[in-house]
Write a protein that binds this DNA or RNA. Sequence first.
DNA 1: TCTTATTTAATAATTGTTACAAATTTAAAA
DNA 2: TTTTAAATTTGTAACAATTATTAAATAAGA
Lengths: 147, 147
Amino acid sequence: MNTLEFAKQKLTEVGLKATQQRMVILAAVQQSKNHPSPEAVYEKVRVNNPSISLGTVYNTLDIFVEKDLIQTVLAKNGLKRYDGRLGNHNHIHCVNTNEILDFEDEELNDLVLEFLKRKKIENLDIRKFSLHIQGEKIDEKKNIKIH
Amino acid sequence: MNTLEFAKQKLTEVGLKATQQRMVILAAVQQSKNHPSPEAVYEKVRVNNPSISLGTVYNTLDIFVEKDLIQTVLAKNGLKRYDGRLGNHNHIHCVNTNEILDFEDEELNDLVLEFLKRKKIENLDIRKFSLHIQGEKIDEKKNIKIH
DNA sequence: TCTTATTTAATAATTGTTACAAATTTAAAA
DNA sequence: TTTTAAATTTGTAACAATTATTAAATAAGA
Ligand SMILES: [Mn+2]
Ligand SMILES: [Mn+2]
Ligand SMILES: [Zn+2]
Ligand SMILES: [Zn+2]
C-alpha cells in the first residue's frame, strides 16, 4: 500500500472525507522528517498539486490535529510546526541550525514513565510527555560549529 | 533587598544600564509564576508605569534573553512566552487551561542527566534539557475537568 | 439527474511582532 | 553647571504568519 492509499484509509477511519487535498497533505506530513511548517507543507504538495491553496493547508493541518492524525510540535521562533509521528518521543532542538530532530529512545521513555508513575502529580491527568534537548550541532570531524 | 534593587544589581552585572523600564520588566518576569507573554508583562508593568511602551517590553525581553537574565519558553499557540527561572527545569502544559506550570524535581534532573551522559548523542553539544508534560488539569474533589 | 451538504480557492482581515524615526533620558566632557 | 554625545524609549508604521470570509467547486445522496 502506497502512502496515498494509507492516508486515504486513515482519513476514512477518523470520519473525514478523503479528498485529494487531504490525502496529499497527510502523506506529506507523515513522510516528512523535518517537523514542517504549514508553509513547508504547502511548498511540498504544491509541486504535484499546483492549484492547492495555502489556507486549505492551514485548515487541514488543524483538522488533522483535532482528529489526532498528527500533532503539533513546539518551536521557539513562534512558527507553527507539525509532526507526523504520534506517540511519545523526544526532540532535539539545534540552537544553531534551528532544526528539530526526532530522538526516539525506548529506554528513556521507560525511565520517565516509571518516574511519573511513582511521583504522582496532583490533579493532573497526564496525556503525553517529551524531553526537549537543546544543543548545538557540531561538525563530527573538525569539532567546529556547523552553519 | 527588594525585587527592584535585585533587578538593578542583575542588570549592572551583565553590563546593562539599569533604567526604570528595565528594572520593572525584569522584576515582573522574575516574580511571575505564569511564564508571561510580552503582552502580559506589559499589562503588569503598565499599572505602575503607565507611560511604558509595548515595543520597549518586546525589545527589553529579547535583550534579557540575550544576556541570559531570563529564558524563552516554548508555547504551543505560537505566542512568545518568557521564564524568569533559569537552569534546567520542567514544564507542565495544561491542555484545558493553557497554563504552563513549572515542575522542578531534582531526582528527575539527575535521572535524565545520567541517561544523557551514558547515551552520548553524536555531534551534539547539549546545552539544556526540559521535560514537557502534557496533561489535563482535573478538579481534585469531584474529578471533573476545570474550565 | 437533481439536490444538498461539504470542501476548497481566493482574498480580506486580524494578530503578534518588528522596524523605524523622533523625542527623551542618561552619562560623560568641557 | 552647561554642553555634547550616546543610549534608550516612545509612538507609530510596516510586516509576516495566521485566521476569517465568501463564492465557486466538488462530492454524496435521493
Ligand atoms: Mn515539543
Ligand atoms: Mn506569529
Ligand atoms: Zn517529532
Ligand atoms: Zn519555567
